[in-house]
Each structure stands twice: as C-alpha cells, then as structure tokens.
Design a binder for these strands. Structure first.
Length: 242
DNA sequence: AGTCATGTTGACGA
DNA sequence: CTCGTCAACATGAC
C-alpha cells in the first residue's frame, strides 16, 4: 500500500466524494471523530505517502504505514480505523495512523518535495542533497523531507536504473549522477503508478526482491544499508559505489 | 504455517 | 542536545 503512487491511486478513486457531506463516521482512530460529522470534504490530496482529507478548517492526515489498506463501498476483515460515510458511498481505512492538522493542507505541506506533485522541484531537492554530503544516497532517498513519496521499492529501482550503489555518499556523486537521480526518482514513481494500475508492477522490478540483475544477470545482493537499515537490493557489477 | 514486508514514531539511554 | 537502538503498531502475500 504505502509508497507515493499507491496514495495517488487512492486519491484518484475518490472524485465522487469531493464536495459531499460526511454523514457518518466510524472507527477506532484516536481523533475526535464527531468533529468530521456533517462537514463537507473540500478535496482529497496527497503529499508523498500522506493521504489528506481536506475540510475547511482542518486536514485529516492518513498514513498507511507498512500494512495499511482501504476499501471503497465495502468492508474488510481488519479492524476499522476510520470510516467515512457519504450520501453516495463509503470510504473505509485500516491500519493507518490518523491525525488532524489544524488549517489547510497548503499551510501544512511543502508540495515541492513530493516527487509526484506538479510542484515537485528538482532544484530544491538538489540543494537539500548538497546539505547532506556525508549521507548515503540510499538513506537520502528515503528522507521524506527531500523525496516525499519514495519508499523502499522506488529507491532500490531508481538506484539500479542510474547504476549507483546505495552506500555511495551523496557528496561524492558526480553531477551527472545527481541529475539522473533527480530525474529518475520522479520518472520511476510515475512508471510505478502506471504499472500498479496495470497490475504488472512486480514483474517490472529489476533489482528489488530479484535474484538476478534485470540488466546483466549478475546475482542481486541484499543488504541492510545505512542508518535506516532497510533492505537494499543491488547489483555489485552494474551499480558503482562513489 | 511461518516468515517477511511498499513505514514511522516515540521512549530510552549513552 | 543529539545520536543510536529498540519496541510498538497491525495485516496479508507467499
């Protein structure tokens, strides 16, 4: 569920609830559920992995963490975290971290860091990278403040695409590799979106959870890298360590 | 059936 | 104050 493109897919399915009133609220989310009742949803937005339900005076922020899921016009077996009933349908969410931000989404988020936003700024991401030259690029990719929406799939596939080893220090990357990184991180997110919709995402993976490199056939190395200690999958033949 | 995983936060101690 | 470590959360695919 969790990476940015999956949240975009959720958002895209909810157009018919925009402008509609929440006529009932349920679930075990630790927020004041009654507060939503009777209010109109002005919009659904996303910022990276954050799914945002926009009301006039506040924003409900949903984070699906690792195991989150949702159902539209249906229910699942899992315990309901937050369920919204509209006159024309239902949105149910499970295993999510739910919070309320006072104010609008615009007041709470910097859209330029979302790799799937139309406001995504390569330039700003580049200057953020320059500030952390000693950070491993694998860790930098998971930094939501720099690349919001990027998760473990996107980071591993992007690094494979640009032939860079996850343990490379950002400050040592050649300019061409920095530029390739900034370009591909967004490009891959949109490929992910398309493949996920087609149901072909897994078979497109070139490194992530693969035994052999999708490019050269060399065995894929799996290792917990960096401070994040998430699993990195990479080709020691194709991907150079800087 | 057991293992593993598309993630983040907060507590705690050094 | 900042850093590292760890527990906690909770589900489903294989």
């Amino acid at each position: 569920m969790p990476e940015g493109p999956s949240i975009v897919i959720l958002r895209e399915q909810l157009d018919r609830f925009i402008g509609k009133e929440v006529i009932d609220v349920g679930g075990n989310a630790k927020i004041d559920l009654e507060r939503l009742k009777g209010l109109k949803v002005l919009d659904f937005k996303s910022w990276g992995k954050h799914f945002l339900i926009c009301f006039r005076d506040f924003t409900v922020r949903i984070h699906f963490m690792m195991f989150g899921s949702y159902a539209i016009d249906g229910a699942k077996k899992a315990r309901l975290r937050l369920g919204l009933t509209f006159p024309n349908g239902v949105l149910n969410m499970y295993t999510a971290d739910v919070r309320i931000w006072e104010g609008t989404a615009d007041e709470n988020y910097d859209w330029s860091s979302d790799v799937m936003s139309r406001h995504w700024s390569r330039k700003k991401a580049k200057s953020k990278l320059m500030e952390i030259p000693d950070t491993q690029v694998g860790d930098a990719l998971l930094d939501q403040n720099v690349f919001s929406g990027v998760g473990n799939i996107i980071r591993n596939e992007v690094l494979h695409r640009i032939k860079v080893h996850p343990e490379s220090k950002t400050g040592k990357l050649p300019k061409t590799k920095i530029d390739a990184l900034l370009k591909e991180v967004s490009a891959y997110a949109f490929d992910f979106l398309r493949w996920k919709k087609e149901g072909t995402l897994k078979r497109q993976w070139q490194a992530y959870h693969r035994k052999e490199c999708g490019r050269c056939g060399h065995p894929i190395h799996k290792k917990e890298t960096g401070k994040t200690r998430r699993a990195s999958f990479f080709c020691e033949r194709c991907q150079k360590k800087y």
